[in-house]
Nucleic acid binder design. Sequence first.
DNA 1: CGGCATCCCCCGCGATACTG
DNA 2: CAGTATCGCGGGGGATGCCG
Lengths: 128, 128
Amino acid sequence: METKQFTGGPTDPADLRRADSLAREIFSDVANKWALLIIEMLGDRTLRFSELRDGVEGISHKMLTQNLRMLERNGLVERTVHPTVPPRVEYTLTGPGRALRTTVDVMCEWTHRNLAHIEVSRRRFDDV
Amino acid sequence: METKQFTGGPTDPADLRRADSLAREIFSDVANKWALLIIEMLGDRTLRFSELRDGVEGISHKMLTQNLRMLERNGLVERTVHPTVPPRVEYTLTGPGRALRTTVDVMCEWTHRNLAHIEVSRRRFDDV
DNA sequence: CGGCATCCCCCGCGATACTG
DNA sequence: CAGTATCGCGGGGGATGCCG
């Protein structure tokens, strides 16, 4: 990652450094378990807060709120509030969010494809 | 992820549940910032412990050790000890590790492709 | 129902020091 | 140089309660 530049970006070294630190920050935001699971859960659906809470195995109210805020701030999910009573808040992936989602899909597929290999490897490791 | 099954896998519901909980565990292991950065750093090179420490921006000795152990346990990296003095320990990605790496690459590309979009989105969000 | 705030506890993580 | 162990702190994150 450190050695990568994005085409059409800034050429001033200072801008490059800024971009890189931003990139690392974004990566830290996004490359965490809960964020990725939320993105995967959303898929191309539109879900309510409570549906997400029930759908994402083991996530707490607080973590869900926090991660949704973060994802919204970074423009990966869109949040729409319906001014009804009781309130109804819906979340959906934006364009960039959906783009990221496809790579999360690949990660999930990878996980399932390698379940057996990993299980064996773990057993070998733990038995020593 | 919850609704996915891998082809050729177990058909017994109990096995499916076991596989799913294992999958979640693996995903939790792997979907974390340091693990992904280490994998990205390794690429298809073979690196020493100290090279990794210097290469992965901001990682501590302890975190590096911990994550390398975890990755080794899951069979994503191979660890080879050269019985010299001073000791020389080298790490390299295994087949599954390299497979995962390609999706991490995509995530990094995604990050850089969306830097501008995210920066704008953040500004809008923070200014409110 | 969804969100924010508060409290509090636990452990993640860094710093340091010691072995082979 | 690589790894393990120990200690100590700060903050992550759970539980709870109160608003709109």
